[in-house]
Design a protein around this nucleic acid. Structure first.
Lengths: 140, 140
DNA sequence: TATAAAACCTACTAACTCGGTAGGATAAAA
DNA sequence: TTTTATCCTACCGAGTTAGTAGGTTTTATA
């Protein structure tokens, strides 16, 4: 399951895609609009900024804004940034790989199935972008 | 990611599929063979028993054994039993569904993508069984 | 240049999960 | 009736999750 943090990240990003034209948006505005604890959201937006997806501006008239074309930000990128690995096992993770000491990856049946699962996931999560979760419209 | 518990469960089940002909297998034997803490494995096997996948026999000559045809136990069943939901969001989970209070499921873009991910996962995890992770051979 | 507005940063918390341990109760076979 | 093995209850340290509190820095503007 995705953490609350990742879920909030998607909600906030979706909101910022909607308001992309309007310049910086206040944390407090997003928090209120999406029903997220403001302080918690603060930390999330900061992570998204450090991850190169958002920009920010301090002081009056400040806030957060997208610095990427929504079509250029796959959902996988957000998930990895906030929650880490997408794969079900470390030994089949592309970005967080760790060798499996209890099995031989070439012949391990579990490894092979989990690699298949990973590929099926990535096929979707690498191709669907912020623009896609936007298009169908996120209400509330 | 799958928990260690679920990973150990798969290793243990794989071992029991291998030794299906030999009658009850000792926890200690599986633990030693697979390099799992015996007491921790004890709890896992008990869960698998309560979940209707394993049977057990107490006393001398006792141990754990499969009570299902390996072909009849999808990997999804083991994951759900040990780790819970397979879906990435509660609002797209088939077995652990929870309504999403922040979005309308019909039009929420995130919901729709995550449902797609769930389907892709289940297509694999509901069709691959204990027999499948066995066939290719799990070494060590 | 003072002031207010906003992001930024550090530290803390309660509750929960994860991986594991300890020790005894129960059941069954010899 | 002793041994063997599962079964059960309780506990533990470390880490994560989902926040909260409060102050620091930067920036626009009056």
């Amino acid at each position: 399951m995705l953490s609350k943090k990742a879920q909030y990240a998607f909600h906030a990003l979706s909101y910022l895609v909607e308001r992309a034209e309007e310049g910086p948006v206040l944390i407090s505005k997003i928090a209120e609009e999406k029903g997220i604890s403001q302080k918690f959201l603060e930390a999330i937006l900061l992570e998204l900024k450090r991850g190169g997806i958002l920009g920010s501006k301090k002081g009056k008239g400040g806030g957060y804004y997208l610095i990427k074309d929504p079509n250029e930000v796959p959902l996988a990128r957000v998930i990895r940034l906030i929650d880490g690995p997408i794969a079900l096992l470390p030994c089949v993770s592309l970005n967080y790989y760790e060798r499996c000491d209890t099995c031989d990856e070439g012949t391990c049946g579990l490894h092979n199935v989990m690699a298949e699962v990973r590929d099926a996931n990535l096929k979707i999560l690498e191709n669907k972008t912020l623009a896609d979760i936007q298009r169908s419209g996120l209400s509330a």
